[in-house]
Design a binder for these strands. Structure first.
Lengths: 195, 195
DNA sequence: GCTTTCAAGCTAATACACTTAGCCAACGAG
DNA sequence: CTCGTTGGCTAAGTGTATTAGCTTGAAAGC
């Protein structure tokens, strides 16, 4: 009875592959065990059930997203940084749809990976705040701006993945308009209507 | 053996109640049958399985959302209509989180309700385009603007429901800023950078 | 009023999926 | 070499969805 040499990271990586190719719904312990050449209960030696696996998937998703955005925005500032951030964000969601979808479900507080998840989401928020440096925002204004940016990015790719944009108008143009809109909004005077 | 007097709409309404109170994950045929005082296979006389039920739930969600936005924006125009639209959208998602979550999963093309679902999403898009009248947008420009608006709204409430806004800054202010940002972007010259 | 027909409930059975309990062999530390 | 730990396994239990086929309530037709 030889050993398969599994590990938690190995399992999560395989799960991420399934999610990216066949969708997040296709990630099951049964299929995972089958692909890893192992029986289902063996997975429990490394992960704490399905909920834990999903939380770990979310961790890899938000970590990969953070790394992609960080790599794209290093050394840039202002509008240049904003554009690079937005493109990297959407590009990651396109290349890893399953991992991105995994971060769209609330984490399980019982999972051992839950705290790690929260740390990584905080890191992503901090990174976005860094990207917004150069628009001379301070304190709560920066937080509000980061929320608006993240909302638009998340909403765009989420609707894209849902096929919610039925009309034939070009998606790239739509995305550029979204980024332009955010950029314009960041320059506009805050807390008042547009003049 | 008395009859329970079920119907498809009755079942879907009960499912929507479960989704709104305990989350979309809690909607199962077993629980549904229990609450309706009936055995599980009896549900199949009215709906075509779980996938069909979920698509029908999505239909009620997008229909309710459309009605809420329509009621809030009738008789308004320009920025006034935009603000009312955004508030009504977010308010509906807050009052019916389960129904709103139901429209975030792709519909099942095998479901009898699938075409109805597509019709209702088209109606919502048409309504948003109506709201944007008054910003003198035409053709593709209007479609792009509608996408940006929908992305931001969807992204904001989705992140809100995920608890993704960990920081203590006020959510109402953040939402107002998002609406201001969209409004400013709609006034900005299109297809070019901000001056 | 009786019959016929259909729809709406039911039981039974099947097929999966997740989870836990407990066993057994392989590997590493001493 | 031995022994403890770890990582695999089988077996069993629970919950869910789905299908097949039966049975009866209730309405439609004569």
């Amino acid at each position: 009875m030889p050993r398969a040499g599994l590990s938690a990271t190995h399992i999560v990586t395989e799960a991420a592959g399934i999610a990216d190719t066949d969708g997040i719904e296709a990630v099951s312990l049964a299929r995972l065990a089958g692909q890893l050449g192992v029986r289902v209960p063996s997975l429990y030696k490394h992960i704490d059930g399905l909920a834990d696996l999903r939380t770990r998937l979310a961790v890899t998703g938000v970590r990969g997203l953070t790394e992609a955005v960080a790599a794209a925005t290093v050394g840039r500032a202002g509008r240049d940084a904003l554009l690079a951030c937005c493109r990297a964000y959407r590009d990651y969601a396109h290349r890893h749809p399953g991992r991105y979808a995994a971060i769209q479900r609330p984490p399980d507080p019982h999972s051992p990976a839950d705290q790690e998840y929260r740390e990584h989401t905080d890191a992503l928020l901090a990174l976005v705040l860094t990207v917004l440096r150069g628009y001379d925002l301070d304190g709560d204004d920066a937080v509000h701006a980061a929320r608006v940016l993240r909302s638009t990015l998340h909403g765009f790719v989420a609707l894209e993945q849902l096929g919610g944009f039925g009309l034939p108008a070009d998606l790239e143009t739509s995305f550029d308009r979204a980024v332009d809109t955010i950029d314009a909004g960041l320059h506009a005077p805050r807390g008042k209507d547009t003049p």
